[in-house]
Design a protein around this nucleic acid. Structure first.
Length: 227
DNA sequence: TATTGATCATAT
DNA sequence: ATATGATCAATA
């Protein structure tokens, strides 16, 4: 089967989960439901990876041969509640690696988004899965993301590591990603030698993924009400 | 209340 | 110790 065929089959499989609850899915997969959501941050993501057959296999750029899987927590108004983690990044890499060669771009080229109901008041077991959609990065969207990446790398290149924060980036931002704020990892500096830096990661802003959800809704509405 | 900075779990 | 799965919670 072609990659395209596999991807379409995967999309259909994912869409078949629409309306199911996390509780039902967990029971079918014999996964225990965590008691406290606060202590189970990645639960929905791991559950859906199992449901869709993502196997642990490092060295691959994305979850599936053609795309990356991301759950998307949706609030009562139908908007993403949180930013979306993309990948780990060390600040000096931002300068050394071009956007085109970056792990971030590889992850974001094609993403299978799986919206999940996620009001804080709603128990895990009752949260419903929404309609999956495949996002393929458009040239315009890539321009936005590349611009953010370039601005971020410019800031690092200028030696502005201290003033660096999550306010940079229209769609793509960089935030801490560590067990706690005291973590430091050894990175290789630009001019000076090795430096100890707080590990960080790329995230897609919720405002950006909200657009992707809207586009997907428009597309599905258009296909069912076409004249 | 939206966003930033901090944190939690699991696996390698 | 690093990477992936994210969401929590203090702050602006």
């Amino acid at each position: 089967m072609t990659f395209e065929g596999q991807e379409q089959a995967l999309l259909q499989l994912a869409r078949g989960l629409a309306g199911r609850t996390l509780g039902e899915l967990a029971r079918e997969l014999s996964l225990p439901l965590p008691a406290s959501p606060a202590r189970a941050k990645g639960f929905a993501g791991r559950l859906l990876e199992r449901a869709l057959g993502v196997s642990e296999c490092p060295q691959r750029a994305t979850d599936f041969p053609t795309c990356e899987l991301k759950t998307l927590p949706i609030d009562a108004r139908g908007r993403p509640r949180e930013s979306t983690f993309v990948c780990h990044v060390l600040l000096p890499q931002l300068v050394e690696v071009e956007w085109e060669q970056s792990r971030a771009r590889a992850k974001l080229a094609r993403v299978l988004f799986l919206p999940i109901e996620a009001n804080r008041a709603l128990p895990f077991a009752e949260r419903r899965i929404g309609c999956a959609f495949l996002w393929v990065m458009s040239p315009a969207q890539e321009t936005t993301l590349r611009d953010d990446y370039l601005r971020l790398s410019d800031r690092v290149a200028a030696g502005q590591l201290e003033s660096f924060d999550a306010r940079l980036g229209v769609a793509l931002q960089v935030r801490p990603k560590a067990a706690h704020a005291g973590v430091r990892v050894r990175a290789y500096g630009l001019d000076d030698g090795p430096v100890a830096v707080l590990p960080r990661a790329f995230y897609l802003r919720a405002s950006f993924t909200a657009e992707l959800v809207r586009d997907a809704l428009d597309a599905s509405a258009g296909s069912t009400t076409a004249p």
